[in-house]
């Protein structure tokens, strides 16, 4: 009997460029960086508000600088991507039962998007007043 000589394929570091779905997946995962930045940005805003009206004005001025706006526009795009992918995948990961019957996954999307709208509206109302 001869010994087998197996060929073991190796995955390249850039595997996530090989297929569109893989690239979209990695972009989805990279949204985590922007979630992090959004939290940091909001904390900076809170610090400015805590620091008094002058600090708050300084923050508003800084947030209007071109690079801050560009960064935040990119962040906004990734956050929306995160929201849409996360909500769309939720029914696949969760089984909801009502009166012993499984709710069809598609029917879960409605309440989730509605919740997003309601939460967003409440937040905007709180901030704008």
């Amino acid at each position: 009997m001869t010994t087998q000589r197996l060929y073991k394929p190796r995955i390249s570091v850039l595997w996530w460029l090989s297929r569109r779905s893989y690239t979209l997946f990695v972009l989805r995962e990279l949204s985590s960086l922007f979630v992090g930045w959004a939290v940091v940005y909001l904390l900076l805003l809170i610090r400015a508000v805590a620091g008094g009206p002058v600090a708050y004005q300084r923050f508003l001025h800084w947030s209007a600088s071109p690079w801050a706006i560009v960064l935040n526009v990119v962040t906004a795009a990734f956050l929306l991507y995160h929201t849409v992918t996360f909500i769309n995948l939720t029914p696949q990961a969760m089984v909801v039962q009502v009166r012993g019957r499984r709710v069809p996954p598609r029917l879960l999307l409605g309440p989730l998007y509605l919740a997003w709208l309601v939460v967003s509206a409440v937040l905007v109302w709180l901030v704008v007043g």
Binding site: V35, A38, V39, Y41, L42, L45, V49, G52, P53, Y56, L60, S63, A64, A68, I69, N72, V73, T75, A76, L79, L80, H82, T83, F86, I87, T90, A115, W116, V119, S120, L123, V124, V127, V128, G129
Partner: peptide, 28 residues
């Protein structure tokens, strides 16, 4: 889930809309 529901509205409002002057900054 929290990030999905909460962050977009806050960041778009406070990081894009207000700095661009589309809406007056909220009162301190």
């Amino acid at each position: 889930m929290v990030a999905a529901l909460v962050l977009p509205a806050l960041l778009i409002l406070l990081g894009v809309v207000v700095p661009l002057g589309l809406l007056g900054a909220p009162d301190h």
